[in-house]
Amino acid sequence: QTTIQVRVPYRVVGLVVGPKGATIKRIQQRTHTYIVTPGRDKEPVFAVTGMPENVDRAREEIEAHITL
């Protein structure tokens, strides 16, 4: 297991999390990772935990939302 920090712009935190957390839950299920969402007043950084290859996939999925 490994944990990485995925930093995103403030404006996309809501996009990545999705309505009621649906998007981030879907990313967690698809990539078999555990993702901690940043709090409102915190740095916009997601903490992604899982097997290294799964963590990389989750990071790619999160980063895909940044380019939307």
Score class of each variant (00 low, 15 high):
Thr3Asn: 13
Arg7Leu: 01
Leu68Glu: 15
Ile4Asn: 05
Thr23Asn: 15
Glu43Ser: 04
Ala64Ile: 06
Arg11Leu: 07
Ile24Asp: 05
Pro52Val: 06
Thr67Asn: 15
Val13Arg: 10
Arg57Glu: 02
Glu63Lys: 08
Arg26Pro: 01
Leu68Ser: 15
Pro52Cys: 11
Phe46Gln: 06
Arg57Asp: 07
Ile27Lys: 00
Val55His: 09
Ile35Tyr: 03
Arg40His: 13
Thr3Asp: 06
His65Ser: 08
Val45Asp: 00
Ala22Asp: 11
Val13Trp: 05
Val13Thr: 08
Leu15Pro: 07
Glu43Pro: 12
Val17Leu: 11
Gln28Phe: 00
Arg57His: 12
Ala64Tyr: 08
Arg30Asp: 13
Val45Ala: 02
Met51Ser: 15
Asn54Ala: 11
Val12Asn: 08
Val8Phe: 09
Thr31Lys: 01
Tyr34Ala: 13
Lys25His: 05
Thr23Val: 10
Asn54Leu: 04
Asp56Lys: 15
Ile24Phe: 01
Val17Lys: 08
Pro52Asn: 04
Arg26Lys: 13
Thr37Arg: 08
Thr31Asp: 00
Val8Leu: 06
Arg26Leu: 09
Arg7Asp: 08
Glu43Trp: 01
Ile24Arg: 04
Gly39Leu: 05
Ile35Lys: 04
Gln5Lys: 14
Pro52Gly: 05
Gln29Ser: 08
Pro44Arg: 03
Tyr10Leu: 13
Thr2Phe: 08
Ile27Trp: 02
Leu68Asp: 15
Ala64Val: 01
Thr31Phe: 03
Thr31Ala: 04
Glu60Arg: 14
Pro38Asp: 11
Leu15Gln: 13
Thr3Phe: 04
Pro19Glu: 10
Thr37Leu: 04
Ile24His: 00
Val55Cys: 12
Pro9Tyr: 01
Glu63Trp: 14
Arg11Thr: 13
Leu15Val: 04
Pro52Glu: 07
Pro44Phe: 12
Val55Ile: 02
Lys42Cys: 14
His65Asp: 12
Thr2Cys: 12
Gln28Gly: 08
Gln28Met: 15
Pro44Tyr: 05
Ala64Cys: 04
Arg7Gly: 00
His65Asn: 12
Lys20Ala: 12
His32Pro: 02
Ile66Leu: 10
Val6Ile: 14
Lys42Thr: 10
Thr2Val: 15
Ile24Cys: 01
Ala64Trp: 03
Ile62Gln: 09
Arg30Ser: 11
Glu53Trp: 11
Thr33Trp: 02
Thr3Ala: 01
Val6Phe: 02
Val48Ser: 08
Thr33Tyr: 02
Asn54Gln: 10
Ala58Asp: 09
Thr23Phe: 06
Gly50Val: 00
Val55Lys: 10
Asp41Pro: 03
Asp56Cys: 12
Arg40Cys: 04
Val36Met: 12
Gly50Phe: 11
Ile62Lys: 07
Leu68Arg: 14
Arg40Met: 12
Arg30Glu: 11
Gln28Thr: 04
